[in-house]
């Protein structure tokens, strides 16, 4: 009966761990890093003016949320993200499928897309500012571009990776190419599309918080 003598807190931890190991250890990792950071800052390991502390960030966050100054910014960012992301997917997925499925569309666009994909988004930002300014539209364009190529390339790769023998089945039984597209190409490409969407979402989040205000003259007076 050793377990019965353990402190209630330890018993609780044991129960939580056995319920969901993934969440349990995930929380430990997060809390552990936060504590280590706080302790390191307070012990004078680095200057707080260079790298803030978790407790200071928490306080600032509470103040901002309380004052209602955070939500409008979050809402704007979310809107920019949603529009850019959805429009991007709506064009990139069909385009990636078309390039993968039709040889001639591949020949037509592949070199062009490879060149554009190799262009860093940062290099395009001045151009985007010239065309769309520094407001809502330009952020949407950055989100769009951040997502677009990741999704086109992974979707295209997915179509290229369809097992030949699977396509042979449809042909062997006299099915049309359109049937092969719907019943073979789409299901086997779906995992690739989803991973493209995931990568694209990550890049788009970076895009939406990118600092256009570097070019805002009122900040440089």
């Amino acid at each position: 009966m050793i377990a019965a003598r353990e402190a209630p807190a330890v018993q609780l931890l044991g129960r939580l761990r056995s319920r969901n190991e993934r969440v349990f250890y995930g929380v430990i990792g997060f809390v552990g890093l936060t504590l280590a950071w706080e302790i390191a800052a307070n012990s004078g390991l680095f200057r707080k003016s260079l790298l803030s502390t978790p407790s200071a960030i928490w306080k600032a966050g509470v103040t901002d949320i309380g004052a209602g100054t955070l939500w409008p910014h979050v809402a704007t960012s979310l809107e920019e993200f949603a529009i850019g992301f959805i429009v991007s997917l709506a064009i990139a997925i069909p385009l990636g499928l078309a390039i993968g499925w039709f040889r001639r569309i591949d020949y037509l666009l592949n070199g062009l897309l490879a060149a554009l994909n190799a262009t860093p988004n940062v290099a395009l930002i001045p151009l985007i500012i010239l065309v769309a300014g520094i407001g809502f539209e330009s952020k949407v364009i950055v989100v769009f571009l951040s997502t677009f190529f990741a999704v086109v390339v992974t979707t295209f790769t997915g179509v290229q990776s369809i097992a030949r023998r699977h396509l042979e089945i449809t042909r062997s039984f006299g099915g049309s190419r359109w049937l092969a597209f719907r019943t073979v190409a789409l299901p086997s490409t779906t995992p690739y599309i989803l991973s493209g969407v995931r990568i694209g979402a990550g890049r788009a989040l970076v895009g939406v918080v990118s600092r256009f205000d570097v070019w805002r003259p009122e900040l440089h007076r």
């Binding site: 023998r165 699977h166 042979e168 089945i169 062997s172 039984f173 006299g174 019943t183 073979v184 299901p187």
Partner: peptide, 13 residues
């Protein structure tokens, strides 16, 4: 159909 193929590896989807 006139003919139907039974594939080498089962080739199921």
């Amino acid at each position: 159909r006139e003919d139907a193929m039974v594939f080498q590896d089962a080739a199921l989807f």
